[in-house]
């Protein structure tokens, strides 16, 4: 006999996870946009909205725990619940990185960015794309898609290295720029971590589909 209620709860849980993913994606884009436009009120909103992301993560976690305790899931059901638990944590941490970028923007105050923001928004776009792809792979149970997420991480790492070198040059040439350069370095580091977390989600998709815990290509950073 099919488990109608359990099936419904599992579907709802996965929908909730995707909703959390979309909240995080918006937070990343908003934090970067606010940084670029020096829009403090938007940065402040990112901080406030992170509380909603945190609550959503706990809500998902509680639902998973409840289903594990009451439904005694096995096989695919168990893998879905374990995957959702892990992915919810990854997404929440990504949200924290977006919050981190918003805080940096607020800390920068009226100071203009050290340089025009070109590579950093590009890193943000790539990281957000990796996040989308990892969640698409989750929805479609797509191992090939999951692997392409980890491949894309190389591009983010390359951009991070480029930004790092550039900022380092600024700092060496003029030590008075260290503070402003460091702000941007932190932002790029947050984006690099978001991309790594997307790879973690992709690893969980592989587990969901195959039952195997694998480490995909490790990030250079």
């Amino acid at each position: 006999m099919p488990r109608v209620d359990f099936e419904r709860d599992l579907r709802q849980l996965q929908d909730d996870l995707l909703f959390l993913g979309s909240m995080v994606e918006k937070a990343i884009a908003k934090a970067l946009d606010a940084l670029k436009r020096r829009d403090f009120s938007a940065s402040q909103e990112v901080l406030e909205e992170d509380n909603i992301i945190d609550r959503k993560r706990f809500e998902i976690e509680e639902k998973c725990i409840d289903l594990i305790a009451t439904q005694q899931p096995l096989a695919r059901d168990l893998r879905i619940l374990i995957t959702v638990l892990h992915v919810a944590v990854e997404l929440e941490r990504m949200g924290d990185y977006a919050e981190g970028i918003a805080k940096i923007s607020l800390n920068m105050g009226d100071e203009a960015p050290l340089k025009p923001l070109i590579d950093i928004p590009r890193m943000g776009e790539l990281a957000a794309k990796m996040l989308r792809q990892s969640l698409d792979a989750f929805v479609n149970r797509d191992i090939v898609g999951a692997h392409s997420v980890s491949e894309a991480d190389d591009e983010v790492d390359a951009l991070y290295e480029q930004v790092y070198r550039e900022l380092l040059t600024f700092m060496i040439e003029d030590p008075s720029k260290v503070k402003r350069a460091t702000y941007l370095l932190w932002v790029s580091h947050d984006l690099e971590r978001i991309a790594d977390r997307a790879t973690n989600i992709a690893e969980r998709v592989v587990y969901l589909v195959t039952g195997k815990l694998v480490e995909m290509k490790t990030s250079k950073y």
Binding site: M1, F6, L74, A75, L78, R79, T210, G211
Partner: peptide, 20 residues
């Protein structure tokens, strides 16, 4: 293996309670 990722659909259906 059987309880986390069985090879056969029938096993999956049985242990997850979707056997009819």
């Amino acid at each position: 293996k059987i309880f986390t990722n069985p090879s056969h659909e029938q096993t999956e259906a049985y242990i997850t309670g979707r056997f009819s």
